[in-house]
């Protein structure tokens, strides 16, 4: 059994398990062998001084949902791509938009925004007034710039 911080019931009737960052991977391994074969959703929530990462796990056979939550101050969480391949794009998206680093991810690149984009839009302190323009270089890679003349 893995040590958990807190277990509660959500508004939607799903069990919420709060766990520390160190115990995340052992807990997830245990969940996977318990029949939770479908990782439905990975969400990162910016809490201003820390970040919550929420995993919605689902078991296809038993039709059961469990929510696993971790809280971290330094924006680094171990990746669960090795356990569920579907976490691959989800974690890339959360890295792109919220700026959580998933340690051990095979290909942690931005997914929606081009490489070189400054800031992570879903952070609460993201500056919306700065306009960034996207252009394509000669190799076909996208890049971002603040200069309007360079973009289109």
């Amino acid at each position: 059994m893995v040590d958990i911080i807190q277990e509660s019931m959500g508004k939607d009737g799903r069990k919420i398990i709060q766990v520390s960052v160190e115990n995340l991977i052992p807990l997830m391994n245990e969940m996977r062998s318990n029949g939770f074969d479908h990782l439905s959703l990975v969400t990162a929530i910016d809490r201003k001084d820390s970040i919550d990462v929420v995993y919605h796990l689902h078991s296809m056979d038993r039709n059961e949902y469990v929510v696993v939550k971790v809280n971290t101050k330094n924006y680094v969480v171990p990746s669960v791509t090795g356990i569920w391949p579907s976490a691959n794009w989800d974690e890339r998206e959360q890295y792109d938009l919220v700026g959580v680093k998933f340690e051990g991810h095979p290909n942690l690149k931005r997914l929606f925004l081009p490489e070189g984009w400054i800031g992570h839009p879903l952070r609460k302190d993201y500056d919306l007034s700065k306009v960034q323009y996207v252009n394509m270089d000669e190799d076909g890679e996208d890049y971002a710039t603040f200069d309007a003349g360079d973009g289109w």
């Binding site: 959500g10 939607d12 799903r14 439905s40 959703l41 969400t43 919605h56 949902y65 929510v67």
Partner: peptide, 16 residues
């Protein structure tokens, strides 16, 4: 917080 899942024409559409 609430996570609702529905069946859209493409599959499981969830809103959290």
């Amino acid at each position: 917080e609430y996570y609702a899942r529905t069946e859209s024409s493409k599959g499981e559409f969830g809103v959290y």
